[in-house]
Amino acid sequence: MNNFNYTKAESIDQAVSAVATQSEGQFIAGGTNLIDLWKYDLTHPEMLVDLNGLSELKAISELPDGGLRLGALVSNNATAYHPLVQERYPLLSRTILAGATAQIRNSATNGGNLLQRTRCYYFYDAASPCNKRNPGSGCPAITGHNRLHAILGESEHCIAVYPSDMSVALAALEATVRVTGPEGAREIPIADFHRLPGAEPARDNTLGAGELITSIDLPSTGFADHHSYLKLRDRNSYAFALVSVATGLEIEGGRIRNARIALGGVAHKPWRVPAAEAILVDKAPTPEAFAEAADLLLAGATGYGHNDFKIELARRAIIRNGMMALDPSTQRPGAQPSL
């Protein structure tokens, strides 16, 4: 909760250079995570560069290849309720609406959503050791309370999970993140955007220093006919996922032609296993088929005590959500299980 300077960005370039030239410069968009982290004394910006005046980042527009460009500064709610998103990417719309609350989704932006930090108890307590916050200090979650924590892709240094819902759908949709930085613009496939903790848990993603997300681009395939997001948590709303699943299917003649399954709440990034999707192709969409996919998705999953249940829960959620995707009308507010 340190003091800081504040400036409003007038252009993307000016924003990028303002942050690049400051030792502790940070962008601020919705602020819903940044201000929270700052109040917990977990981040100490010296300069906040407010992006909210950059109208070029506030649009949702169609792409020539049939895809859709989601401006980084469009709010989560504006995205979820946008007619084109609802019509062509209902999986994304429903997934966004299962996250946080209406109030937070009104402020939170698409770019900011990608950059949410973990909700690990120990990360959030400045007085606790935490390798993500204070490299080398240790990870009390491994031997402490790890109900929220990772069962896949974790390391001996960090078992935190990445909390975003939206990114789980973006992973299933194979979105591309477009960024601009001091070195120019580039595109990052969503699968490469977030990273596993490894020996460097402090780094959540592959964004370079001073890089700014400008948009998230969706390819044309939206799985509008067969999709579902299922979110399992400790209360029906306003809680992070213990396990979530985003499933998109293309079905022809009773057989799966194309499948995407991404898991949330289980790893340091949205979890996808291409082999698990490949095995579904040409199969009838049955619980047995999704169970096979689940085994591949969860291969090597490890529990740490309190989170052991996630392995079985995730398996069942993958199967259930596969079946829910066949009839998207079974989806319920808050991505609760179908009745």
């Binding site: 307590d125 309370h145 609760q336």
Partner: peptide, 14 residues
């Protein structure tokens, strides 16, 4: 360690 209303779960309307 869950000393906030995000992780100390009170029931919500839903």
């Amino acid at each position: 360690i869950n000393t906030d209303l995000g992780e100390y779960h009170l029931p919500v309307h839903a």
